Amino acid sequence: MASLQDDHDEVVERFEPTSGRVSGWMTVVLTAVLAVAGVAYADEGFPLWVAAAGVLVGVLAWAVMLRPALWVTTEHLVMQNLGETLHIRLAAIEEMAVRQVLVVRAADRRFVSTVVGRTWRKALTSRHRPGGLAGDAALAPTEGMHYADFVENRLYDLVDTARRRAEIRPGSPEQLALPGAVRREPAWVPLGLISAALLLLVLSLVL
């Protein structure tokens, strides 16, 4: 993803997904086998629409469960989602919390990443750190802590550092007025693959 950053906005840290990868890969493999079987046994009456549906499910599984990614650059929190990649300026982040998904508020808007999350039970019992606090030693990342807790605290540290560097207070008019708070990049590859798979399914039902 080097093309997404210039020399002054290099990747600082990447975060691993907390769920969905195993089931995602299993779905992709199973649907690939189904699609291959559909082509191999088409002359023996194997329904083409079943193979086409398998392709669509496989593409959706990849786009929804495997493609999403989360990383931080010098200046931005980057959320790679199904249909777009979001570049959120760290100093512009107003609030943030890891619940069942990561929720970030910036430029008076709400953004979500499914890469990092807690179970429903863990989300109910976790401690929430207000967006404006910095240097909370009790919540600093420690060895053996839950990975979602580590990610949340690491993101707070990076956001706090960016705010101090920009001399911005959370919730201040200066923060809301920061230029380039959020940049969106459409994800043409997954959107194109999903559209093509849908078209293939429709054609298989018509023919």
Rank of each mutant, 00 (worst) to 15 (best):
S19V: 08
M26I: 15
V33A: 05
V98E: 03
G144R: 04
W49H: 07
G20A: 05
M1Y: 13
A162G: 05
T85Q: 09
M26W: 03
E94Q: 15
S23M: 08
Y41N: 13
A187G: 03
L86S: 12
G24E: 02
K122W: 03
L82W: 13
E143T: 14
L158K: 14
R99A: 01
P186D: 04
A35V: 14
V50I: 13
Q175V: 01
L207T: 10
I168F: 15
D108L: 09
R67M: 00
M1V: 05
A187H: 08
A197M: 08
D108A: 13
V28Y: 01
D157L: 12
A63W: 07
E10F: 12
R118T: 08
L155G: 04
M1S: 13
T161P: 01
S204G: 15
G192E: 09
Q80M: 03
V182L: 06
A35Q: 01
A52G: 15
E75D: 13
E143N: 06
L203F: 06
E10M: 09
S19M: 09
E44Y: 11
L86C: 04
Q100T: 11
A40M: 05
S172A: 03
L133R: 15
T27D: 00
P68D: 01
V11N: 08
P186Y: 09
V55G: 02
E167P: 03
V11M: 10
A32G: 10
V39W: 05
V78M: 07
R67V: 02
G24P: 04
G24W: 00
V101R: 10
E95K: 14
G20M: 06
G180D: 15
R105W: 12
A140R: 15
R163H: 04
A106I: 01
Y41E: 02
F15Y: 15
G132Q: 15
A91N: 06
W25E: 08
L77K: 11
A138G: 00
V189Q: 10
E16V: 07
L207A: 06
R184F: 02
A97Y: 09
D6M: 00
D149C: 01
D136K: 12
L199R: 02
G58Q: 02
V39G: 10
R164V: 03
L201R: 06
V206F: 08
V29C: 06
V189S: 07
D108E: 14
G58S: 04
E185F: 09
E174V: 01
V39Y: 05
A61Y: 00
R121Y: 12
L203A: 15
V116A: 02
G45Y: 00
V64Y: 11
P190K: 14
S195L: 15
A140G: 05
S113C: 04
I93G: 04
A32H: 00
V103K: 11
W188T: 06
V202K: 09
L34D: 03
E75V: 03
W49R: 13
D149S: 14
G117I: 12
R89V: 00
V115N: 06
M79Y: 06
F150G: 00
D9Y: 10
A40I: 11
H146D: 12
V78D: 06
F150A: 03
A52M: 02
A32E: 00
A137N: 11
G24I: 06
A197G: 05
R127S: 09
R127K: 10
A52L: 10
